[in-house]
Design a protein around this nucleic acid. Structure first.
Length: 746
DNA sequence: GAGTTTGAAACT
DNA sequence: CAGTTTCAAACTC
């Protein structure tokens, strides 16, 4: 039942990068990432990669027959029985949709195709759209329905537990701004939602004036629903709602309690109060749980509403750029989040950080010209102090996917539990990546997908539209506040202090101080100015912080140099900033070095070897000599055993220290009153060196006597212990006597 | 902590 | 692309 409806097909992003599948990423031409949707050709089909097969069906909005008819256009990979269905809401919810009929016939011919949908084991979901010439020209029926309006459907990916996260954009998302700004009746309230599953936060995006966060919980079957509600122009006869529901039946993997059944709750469909309102709001709904929780293993998406504890809203204004966020998870389940922010619209720029799922796409594709004001009308927003979110300018012309997050950066971004009232759009354990306007960053644009983790394309101060700064996520806070509008849940946040807000909350829930203070191995670069890949900080897309480097340029003060260095690195190696440890092919180890090592002397059993350092075995792509880093290597096994033993010892020592410290602390606590009240020395204070030596002498003497009398070992041990007991009693007795004789100052 | 070794990155 | 140099981390003493 692989069906792709024209509507849904046009909703789909042209490409969704799989950051862990390096090979596949490399196959995606960079220019497609930046090309405007309207003019660019359809992206080439990306080879399917199925590691955790799932079935994805994109179904037309009306009938099941349509789904069937379109099935040939969709190519879905499946192997694990997991299904992702894009189906009309009417099929699921019973809602009758008419938009398809009114906009044009739903046909399967000349429609954009979903070339492949891949949901590999790393929980990344890939949906590729095949180019369709007829659809591209916008003349075909199918294209006419969707393409002109630029409706987008973003498949953000899967959360750690496998829940797909979807973000859909309204048909009119990338409409010319003129219609928006002028209050064109065609402005359609559209609700876009990102939906996760059981207990997971759901991101809902809506263009309606009132936005509602939605949270979806799924049962053991884990239905995943993406619901897109579209309303036709009010001018037309009657409201017309088209709902697209993407349901996904997932295995229960990752669910500790399959029995727990939660109803699927989609975000409230909000109708636009004013048909002609120019405002276009993108709201990311309140999540069920805004705090990614590592302990539970459940990734969660927490998008906090800007100035509203219950809502997360983006208001699209003069669409001029596209914000797309993608979150992926590295080997350790981390990802990064990048944001591209236009320079010319500081007040209209918002940075989105999405925590939770394995990877996220938050793609705001719209091109509207009319300035609008955000309207947050959520029912939960009862705080009068809450102000509307700042507008976000989006441009459908930007079609980029930025792979996210190398595992290395995980260390800096760790989710921090947040209260439901303080929902923050953050990445879970991931740095940030950003997306910039496709046409405004020619130097870097082709390599967007290779930007270092945590890179943020931010407006360069004092420059025009062309200015962008590539910043590591942790340093977003360095950007002047005017450049950002941070999406936070705190109603107390004012738009005037976005940076502070981000400083407190953006780093996966960690405050800046927490994030920056997080232990990270400092570099010691002396000659590279930390602008070459020799520098681990630079290679990881991070600014140097608390490093020991000399003449460091890897900071915001030298952003221009840093940008040049990044570009130089990318010129040399387009994937220079991608994680070196990626997923291997099927049948191979889950993790392997993307390039392989080249060791000659270390036998690949020292940390010189990148494979060994990453705790993975060398693979066939390695060019090492005398490699001993393979499965059956006795040397490797020995090393592993030694390492394990050492680790055990360390753990034991740590535990012993902890226990001892606890005991000492407890003892002091219990004995302190005696000291303070009695003023005398505690018994153990009498165990001086002399006393200890005397005790040892006594024990040795006892040992010698036992040996002389040929006592069995057990008896000897008992005698020694008894002697030790006598010694202790004498010490205690003496201590007590001393306290009695000299209760004060003894 | 200083010096050496190592292999990736950078350069030619 | 191969060889060489540079670089910083890993390692040794």
């Amino acid at each position: 039942m692989d069906v792709v409806s024209p509507e849904l097909n046009s909703l789909l992003p042209d490409e969704i990068m799989d950051t862990e599948a390096i090979a596949m990423e490399e196959e995606l031409p960079a220019e497609h990432l930046a090309a405007p949707p309207q003019s660019e050709p359809e992206p080439p089909q990306v080879p399917m990669e199925t590691e955790v097969p799932e079935i994805v069906s994109l179904c037309p909005a009306t009938t099941s027959m349509q789904m069937t008819s379109a099935s040939t256009d969709a190519q879905c990979s499946t192997s694990s029985g997991t299904q992702l269905l894009l189906a009309p809401s009417g099929l699921i919810t019973g809602t009758t949709t008419t938009s398809v009929k009114t906009t044009g016939p739903v046909v399967t011919q000349n429609l954009p195709k979903i070339s492949s949908v891949t949901v590999p084991a790393n929980h990344q979901l890939i949906i590729n759209k095949v180019a369709s010439a007829p659809a591209a020209d916008g003349k075909s029926p199918g294209a006419a329905v969707l393409k002109p309006e630029g409706q987008k459907l973003l498949v953000a990916g899967l959360s750690k537990t496998g829940q797909p996260i979807m973000l859909a954009l309204p048909h009119t998302w990338n409409k010319p701004a003129t219609t928006q700004g002028t209050g064109d009746a065609k402005a359609l309230p559209t609700q876009i939602k990102m939906v996760t599953t059981v207990g997971k936060p759901v991101i809902a995006v809506s263009s309606a004036s009132q936005l509602m966060g939605s949270s979806t919980t799924l049962q053991a079957q884990q239905l995943k629903t993406l619901q897109i509600t579209k309303k036709p122009p009010v001018s037309t006869a009657g409201p017309m709602i088209t709902k697209l529901i993407i349901t996904k039946a997932l295995n229960n993997k990752g669910l500790s309690s399959p029995a727990s059944v939660a109803p699927v709750v989609t975000g409230r469909v909000v109708t636009q109060s004013t048909p002609v309102t120019p405002a276009r709001n993108l709201a990311i709904g309140e999540t069920v749980s805004t705090v990614p929780q590592n302990t539970s293993g459940n990734s969660k998406v927490a998008i906090s509403p800007l100035k509203s504890p219950s809502k997360y809203m983006l208001t699209t204004f003069n669409a001029d750029f596209c914000v797309q966020t993608l979150k992926t998870v590295g080997g350790v389940g981390t990802s990064q989040f990048k944001t591209i922010i236009p320079l010319t619209t500081p007040p209209n720029v918002q940075q989105i950080q999405v925590p939770g799922s394995r990877f996220h796409y938050v793609r705001l594709v719209t091109a509207t010209t009319g300035s609008t004001t955000a309207q947050s009308g959520g029912s939960t927003n009862t705080n009068p102090s809450i102000q509307p979110a700042k507008p976000v300018m989006m441009n459908a012309a930007v079609r980029m996917s930025v792979p996210i997050i190398p595992a290395q950066s995980i260390k800096q971004v760790v989710p921090k539990p947040l209260t439901s009232a303080a929902q923050v759009v953050t990445t879970s354990q991931t740095p940030q990546r950003l997306i910039m306007p496709a046409t405004h960053l020619p130097q870097i644009q082709p390599n967007l997908t290779s930007l270092p983790p945590g890179t943020v394309l931010a407006p360069a101060h004092g420059s025009g539209n062309m200015g962008y700064a590539v910043l590591p996520a942790p340093y977003v806070t360095q950007i002047p506040q005017s450049a950002f509008v941070t999406l936070t849940s705190s109603s107390t946040f004012s738009t005037a202090t976005p940076i502070q807000t981000q400083a407190r909350l953006s780093l996966n829930g960690l405050s800046t101080s927490e994030a920056t203070s997080r232990p990270r191995k400092p570099c010691n670069c002396t000659r590279s100015q930390c602008l070459k890949l020799y520098c681990d900080c630079f290679a990881n897309g991070e600014f140097c912080n608390n490093c020991n480097c000399v003449n460091c340029f890897n900071n915001l003060d030298h952003e221009s140099e840093r940008l040049k260095a990044i570009k130089a690195c990318l010129d040399r190696n387009p994937v220079a900033f991608k994680p070196k440890i990626g997923k291997g092919k099927q049948g191979e180890s889950d993790r392997r070095h993307s390039k392989g090592c080249n060791c000659k002397k270390s036998g690949c059993l020292k940390n010189y070897c990148e494979c060994y350092e990453a705790k993975i075995m060398c693979s066939s792509i390695c060019k090492c000599m005398g490699c001993k880093n393979f499965e059956e290597s006795p040397e490797r096994k020995t090393l592993m055993h030694l390492a394990d033993a050492a680790e055990v010892r360390v753990q034991q020592q740590t535990a012993a220290k902890t226990k001892l410290s606890s005991q000492i602390s407890d003892l002091l606590t219990r004995t302190t009153p005696a000291v303070t009240s009695g003023g005398g020395k505690l018994p153990y204070t009498f165990v001086t060196k002399e006393v200890a030596e005397a005790t040892c002498d006594c024990l040795l003497e006892q040992t010698e006597q036992a040996e002389l009398t040929n006592q069995p070992q057990a008896v000897a041990e008992r005698l020694i212990l008894e002697e030790f007991g006598r010694c202790l009693r004498r010490i205690i007795s003496f201590a007590g006597k001393a306290k009695t004789d000299c209760p004060i100052n003894c």
